[in-house]
Amino acid sequence: MAGNRVKVILTVAAIAAVIMLLKSPQQEAPLFESRLMMDTIISIRAYPVISKKQLDAAFAEFAKVESKASFHLENSELSALNRNGSLGAASSLTPLLQIAADYFARTDGYFDPSFASLQKAYGFYSGEGRLPGEDEIAGLLRDRCGLGQVLLQNEEGFKLASGSLIDLGGIAGGYAIEKAARVLRESGCSGFLIDDAGDIWFEGSKPDSSNWRIAVRDPRDNGTLALVESRAPLAISTSGDYERFITVDGKRYGHIMNPHSGRPVDYYSSVTIIASEPVTADALSTAVFAMPPEIAFKWVEERNLAVLFLTSTGTIHLSRAGRQYFRQAEAQ
């Protein structure tokens, strides 16, 4: 209820990562390094070993994205937009905002960065969790949410509705991965894998020509939910209810909202999507997680998306395209 004091828990990604890399035996050791960036652990694995300068340049792409797209850094361009309600057309944040608007439209509003206003009302940012009343939620949905109505772009830049907030966490990681991948390609890497707290991109070949092998973690017991093997480049992204949540009166509520009810969704424990681009996987895993099953299952089939659902009751559901990629995950 409103006013109840609760804990807001953000699990460290290095401990509760959804996806892990499985090593192939007897292969040349790659360069491997992890760094704490963007409030999580970023890892890069590359063949052949590149110079420290080249590696630093790849990691620097994450720092660049964080400096402009962070919700929490006061001097970021996103914070300036949230604080001032406007942003000039020349802003380096413009491409990300345009991508966000595109996925908002493509997902029928289920990918909606303006739901930061609702998340603030629930206490996800302050550390004081609460359950807003129906009237408060209705007012937020009417006046401060819905990216298509609260964020407008013209030749001068962007205007954000008064009281609205934008959080680009649903695509910033995938966007940074794409930038870092370009640096690694230009550095001469024949194969590499980038892991941003479970948002993964891999491409190229390993010295032994073996497949890239990824294990999708089961959030219930930290076991393996499914395996993905491929030599072709793939992006894999998982959204879940176990990393960022509030607890009110002993009940846990995740941070992803249903855009129609304004309430945290409780349909799934995790949703994992495979796509051809990191930003696509990142945005769609969030959007699909927000959809009720009767909408989500049909929506992903119509778009031939490879998706693994783990419902809140423990049932595994695979899309038709997902059956081509996910192994050892039997639909129930």
Results as ranks from 00 to 15, higher is better:
Ser205Pro: 01
Arg182Trp: 05
Arg144Trp: 02
Ala172Tyr: 01
Asp196Ile: 00
Glu178His: 05
Ile166Asn: 00
Asp135Val: 04
Trp201Cys: 09
Gly129Lys: 10
Asp208Gly: 13
Glu128Ser: 13
Asn211His: 15
Gly191His: 03
Glu203His: 03
Gly133Asp: 15
Ala138Glu: 13
Gly133Thr: 03
Arg185Val: 01
Asn154Gly: 12
Gly157Thr: 03
Pro132Asp: 06
Gln149Phe: 09
Gln149Thr: 14
Asn211Cys: 13
Gly163Ala: 11
Ala215Ser: 15
Arg130Ser: 15
Gly127Glu: 15
Phe124Glu: 02
Ile214Lys: 04
Phe192Asn: 09
Glu203Asp: 11
Arg220Asn: 10
Gly170Asn: 04
Gly198Asp: 08
Gly170Glu: 02
Asn154His: 09
Trp212Tyr: 07
Ser126Ala: 14
Gly139Asn: 11
Glu128Asp: 14
Phe124Ile: 02
Asp199Lys: 00
Arg144Phe: 10
Arg182Pro: 01
Gly188Arg: 06
Ser209Glu: 12
Arg144Val: 06
Ala172Met: 04
Arg130Asp: 14
Lys159Ile: 11
Gly139Ile: 01
Lys179Glu: 12
Trp201Asp: 07
Asp143Trp: 07
Val183Leu: 10
Leu193Thr: 03
Glu203Gly: 05
Ser209Gln: 14
Gly204Tyr: 00
Leu147Thr: 05
Gly204Gln: 10
Glu156Gln: 14
Tyr125Asn: 01
Gly170Trp: 00
Phe158Thr: 03
Gly129Gln: 07
Ser162Thr: 11
Arg220Trp: 03
Leu168Tyr: 03
Gly148Lys: 13
Gln149Pro: 03
Glu156Ser: 13
Asp135Phe: 06
Asp196Phe: 05
Gly133Ser: 09
Gly169Thr: 01
Glu134Asp: 13
Asp135Ile: 05
Val216Tyr: 01
Asp143His: 12
Gly139Tyr: 02
Val183Gln: 11
Ala180Trp: 03
Leu168Ile: 00
Glu186Tyr: 02
Trp201Gly: 07
Val183Ile: 15
Arg130Gln: 15
Ser210Ile: 04
Arg213Cys: 14
Asp196His: 07
Asp167Tyr: 03
Ala197Tyr: 09
Trp201Tyr: 13
Asn222Ala: 15
Cys189Ser: 13
Ala138Gly: 04
Asp218Ser: 13
Ile137Glu: 07
Gly198Cys: 10
Arg130His: 14
Leu141Cys: 07
Pro207Ile: 00
Ser190Gln: 08
Ala176Tyr: 06
Glu203Pro: 06
Gly127Ile: 13
Asn154Trp: 08
Ala176Thr: 00
Gln153Ser: 12
Asp208Lys: 14
Ser126Lys: 10
Arg130Leu: 12
Phe158Lys: 08
Asp195Glu: 09
Pro207Gln: 08
Arg130Met: 12
Gly174Glu: 05
Gly146Leu: 10
Gly163Met: 05
